[in-house]
Amino acid sequence: MAFTRCAGHHSDVRRPNHYCPIAAAVEALGGRWTILILYELLQGTRHFNELERGLPGISRSVLAERLRFLESEKLIVRTVEGQRRGYVLSPSGRDLRDVIIALARWGARWALTEPLPRQLDPAFLVWSMHHRIRRDRMPEGQTIVEFRFSGCNRRRVWLVWRKGEASVCLKHPGFDTDLVIDTNGSSLFEVWVNRVRLADEIRAGRITAEGPRVLVRNWAEWFDWPDLPEPETADLRRPVHWESAKEA
C-alpha cells in the first residue's frame, strides 16, 4: 500500500492513498500502545503517572509521545487541575468505547492464550480491579483489602477504600487490614478474564478470603467483573497454576 503526506489538516501524519474509513481508522489508532492508552482513559484514569501505572512495560518517553499523537488526532484533550495536568477523551475518543470493548471481547474469545509467568503482574490486576469498584456495594466507612499472590510472582498489593474512593498501594498503607484475599498462582488473573469461574477457584481452595464473615461473604460483589466471552477452544480454557508447574 502506498502512502502520501496530506496537505493541510494533519499534514505531518502519513495517510493511505485510498479513501477508506477502515484505513483511516487504523492509521489514526496505529501504534502498539494507542488503544491501551485510550482504554485506560475510558476507565477514568486522567494523569500521566496513573497512565504509566496502568500500562506495564511502557516507557515514559513512549507514553509522552503517544499522548502527543492522540492529542494531535483530536482523540484526547489536555486538562489542567490546579497544578496537575491531565488528559480526558474528546467526543471522538469517547465514541471509540464500543469499538474498544468489542476488541476486548474478540481478544478474550480468540486471542487470549495461557498466561506466561511474566504476564502475571499483581499490581496491574489490582489496578484493573480498582477501576471496576461497585460503589453501591462497598462497605460503609474505610475498608482495606490485602491481596496476597503466591507462586512465581509472590507479592502483596493493597486496595484501599476510603472516603468513597478506591486506591492501590504497593506498600503497606498504614491502616489495619480488614480482609485478606489469598490467590494461588494465576487463579485470580484467569477469573478476571473469564477463563475460569470464581466459585470453582474458591471451592478448590485456590482463592481464599480471611476476615470478618460479612466481608468474606460479600467481597466478590464489590467488583463489576468484566463481561467477557469464554475462550473458544478447550485448550484455551484449561487453567494453569504456575506454582504447581514449578514444583513439578
Score class of each variant (00 low, 15 high):
209 A>C: 07
201 E>L: 06
225 W>Y: 14
216 V>I: 10
189 F>R: 00
194 N>Y: 14
222 W>Y: 11
192 W>I: 04
208 T>R: 11
198 L>H: 03
190 E>W: 02
213 R>Q: 10
209 A>K: 03
186 S>N: 09
192 W>A: 09
205 G>I: 13
215 L>C: 05
215 L>K: 05
221 E>K: 09
216 V>Q: 09
190 E>F: 03
223 F>T: 10
188 L>R: 02
205 G>T: 12
182 D>T: 15
208 T>Y: 04
217 R>N: 09
189 F>N: 03
205 G>S: 10
223 F>P: 01
197 R>S: 14
227 D>V: 15
217 R>C: 04
213 R>Y: 09
216 V>N: 01
184 N>D: 14
220 A>K: 04
187 S>L: 01
228 L>N: 10
183 T>C: 06
200 D>I: 13
187 S>R: 01
190 E>V: 02
183 T>H: 12
212 P>T: 07
214 V>T: 06
227 D>Y: 11
222 W>P: 01
213 R>N: 07
215 L>H: 09
188 L>S: 07
205 G>N: 07
187 S>H: 02
228 L>Y: 14
185 G>D: 04
225 W>G: 09
188 L>E: 03
220 A>I: 07
200 D>V: 13
205 G>P: 02
198 L>C: 11
203 R>H: 14
203 R>S: 13
186 S>P: 03
182 D>V: 12
208 T>N: 07
198 L>Q: 03
183 T>L: 01
206 R>S: 04
218 N>V: 07
196 V>T: 15
218 N>I: 08
200 D>T: 15
190 E>N: 09
225 W>F: 13
188 L>G: 09
199 A>W: 05
201 E>V: 12
219 W>N: 04
226 P>H: 12
204 A>R: 11
202 I>S: 03
225 W>N: 10
225 W>P: 03
187 S>D: 07
222 W>M: 06
227 D>H: 15
203 R>G: 05
192 W>Y: 15
217 R>K: 10
192 W>P: 01
186 S>T: 13
211 G>R: 05
217 R>T: 09
204 A>Q: 12
185 G>W: 01
196 V>E: 03
199 A>S: 14
183 T>P: 00
183 T>R: 00
184 N>P: 00
209 A>L: 08
196 V>Q: 02
216 V>D: 00
202 I>D: 00
214 V>L: 06
192 W>M: 04
196 V>G: 02
199 A>I: 15
206 R>I: 02
183 T>K: 00
219 W>E: 03
209 A>T: 06
224 D>L: 14
195 R>H: 12
210 E>Y: 10
191 V>C: 08
224 D>Y: 07
184 N>Y: 15
219 W>I: 11
194 N>T: 15
